[in-house]
């Protein structure tokens, strides 16, 4: 049994798979066994799957206390399954936050929100920013505490897919990538481990300053266009997993974040150019 912290959430993992435990230790480092073992929010297991199936193809099954939300994965993909399963746990439970489907990073005490839309290249972009001096707050969930308006970090491994794996390897020799899981349901996947700073500062909340809706277009030069606030409202609320569920709190949170951030849509064709454009985003007045 292993207990570890993922941002504000504590996880208790039971699994007979030693490789999986090693990967969790590799990825979450100092946040493993950092919590008291008596009380955990997410009680999960990754098991071996039924014997009959095991004989032909080893499997891994993700379970929470009372449910098995996914079909079994091939055993080799257990880590990807666990990460996916924790996404599930967070999305179904953590309604104390407006959960944006966004990457979030911090620079000089200000947070940048990068909402994911299909084709945004969000994970690649988040990985590149995290390797260029920005602090990774999250890749999958932008957790906006609707009581305070602050972003809660939830640093996780960033899953890179297919070509992105090589792009990030080339982008930075420091990129600390885990094993490549070939042919998962999303193609080849490798995880970039969050760095020490991201992990150790995972309880430092940050005020959002910029919202940028990125769109990758091959060959395009970088262009940032200001986004009218009412459109930013509509796009951000559609981007959130639980906007409707949390009712007026969601409305107020989106209104506030859109009102206090500078909002942009960005088109880009290369990492270097979008990175320097994001670096040049003016800091908010103190």
């Amino acid at each position: 049994m292993l207990t570890y912290r993922v941002g504000p959430f504590s996880v208790r993992l039971r699994t007979p798979l030693h490789d999986l435990i090693q990967l969790v230790r590799w990825c979450y480092g100092t946040n493993v066994d950092a919590e008291p073992r008596d009380l955990a929010l997410f009680n999960v297991a990754v098991e071996k799957g039924s014997l009959s199936r095991r004989l032909f193809a080893p499997q891994a099954v993700f379970r929470t206390d009372s449910e098995t939300p996914f079909q079994p994965f091939p055993r080799d993909h257990a880590f990807a399954l666990l990460e996916w399963g924790l996404n599930w746990c967070i999305a179904t439970r953590a309604h104390q936050y407006l959960m944006l489907h966004s990457a979030a990073l911090e620079r000089d005490g200000h947070a940048l929100i990068l909402p994911a839309i299909p084709g945004s290249g969000k994970s690649t972009l988040a990985a590149a920013l995290a390797l260029s001096g920005w602090r990774l707050l999250s890749d999958e969930f932008g957790l906006l505490d609707w009581k305070t308006g602050l972003l809660q970090p939830v640093p996780r491994a960033i899953p890179l897919k297919n070509d992105s794996i090589e792009i990030i390897r080339r982008f930075s020799p420091q990129a600390d990538l885990g094993p490549v899981f070939p042919r998962t349901r999303k193609g080849d996947v490798a995880h970039l481990r969050p760095d020490k700073q991201a992990l150790s500062r995972d309880m430092e909340t940050v005020r959002p300053a910029w919202i940028v809706f990125p769109r990758y277009r091959a060959g395009s030069s970088v262009r940032l266009t200001p986004l009218p606030r009412h459109l930013a409202f509509v796009r951000l609320s559609q981007n959130a997993f639980n906007y409707r569920l949390i009712g007026v709190a969601g409305f107020a949170a989106v209104e506030h974040v859109v009102d206090t951030c500078s909002c942009w849509s960005a088109e880009y064709g290369g990492l270097d150019s979008i990175l320097s454009a994001l670096d040049r985003l003016p800091s908010p007045a103190p």
């Binding site: 009218p228 606030r229 009412h230 409202f233 509509v234 609320s237 409707r244 009712g247 007026v248 409305f251 107020a252 209104e255 009102d259």
Partner: peptide, 20 residues
């Protein structure tokens, strides 16, 4: 009712029905 107004466009949250 809870309003957010920007320019000529208004957003309205209606607590009775939970719709925006």
């Amino acid at each position: 009712f809870r309003w957010a107004n920007w320019d000529a466009e208004s957003l309205l949250f209606h607590g009775e029905t939970g719709e925006t």
